[in-house]
Amino acid sequence: MRTVVCVKQVPDTTEVKVDPQTGTLIRAGVPSILNPYDHFAVEWALKLKARHGGEVTVLTMGPPQAKAVLQLALALGCDRAMLLSDRAFAGSDTWATSYALARAVKKIGKFDLILCGQQAIDGDTAQVGPGVAQSLHIPQITFCDSIEVEGRKAKVQRHIDDGYEIVEAKLPVLCTMSLPHAHPLPWPSFPKVAQARSKVLEVWTAADIGAEPEKIGLKGSPTQVHKVYPPPLRAKGTVFTGSASEMASKLLDILRQENFIKP
């Protein structure tokens, strides 16, 4: 099994606070982490490697400091890592990112499985996985819970409305992984972190992957961010305090007043 996992370094959005006065983001002190969905994808790649053998390559695109998430993936047991880093990638939207990652996967060579997180917690687009699959002309299975590989086939459980389905596809296939609630993600031990330093971590530029200049960065990105602003606040409501029975009758008044119950 040759698996490539595409990951992203993201700010921990659960730690992001909003300044109540100005309504702007307070980013100071917000740690950068391996996107939790991607972390789960790494866990799955390693689980499949434990069952079927093979090699796991972890791939990311980002600034030089994104190496940190690759080092984590290596410490968890991935075999080699590639960082796509080039100023020419700056401003890439999901289209240009998908294209660059697909080019890098091609350079990595033969693969059986590509795993991605279903989405990154900073952008929440869920578009890059399918974009990579289409760019590589391979099938995709999105929003997956679990993967079983038998011979040259993958059997995958994925989300649908109100439940799930079991689907089957021949390898190679790209799966985007969902993340079960309250799932404890794996963390490496200190010795593993130290050992990981000797593993291969290559940095590739746009030229290394043979990317066409008009398909990467701002130029290759059909969408442009026009404006970013804090979410609109709602008008301040009315606050009520008092005993439990006072509050219960207040609630009845409110329900009546707003026509949820008959007067």
């Binding site: 289209w95 929440d124 578009q127 995709q140 969408t223």
Partner: peptide
């Protein structure tokens, strides 16, 4: 922006080099 739409739209966008804004 459902399981279906979010599976389909990015696939199409990638193929025809169209812009796609999520959710």
């Amino acid at each position: 922006a459902t399981y279906v739409g979010r599976d389909l739209a990015p696939r199409i966008a990638a193929e025809i080099h169209a812009g796609l804004t999520a959710d």
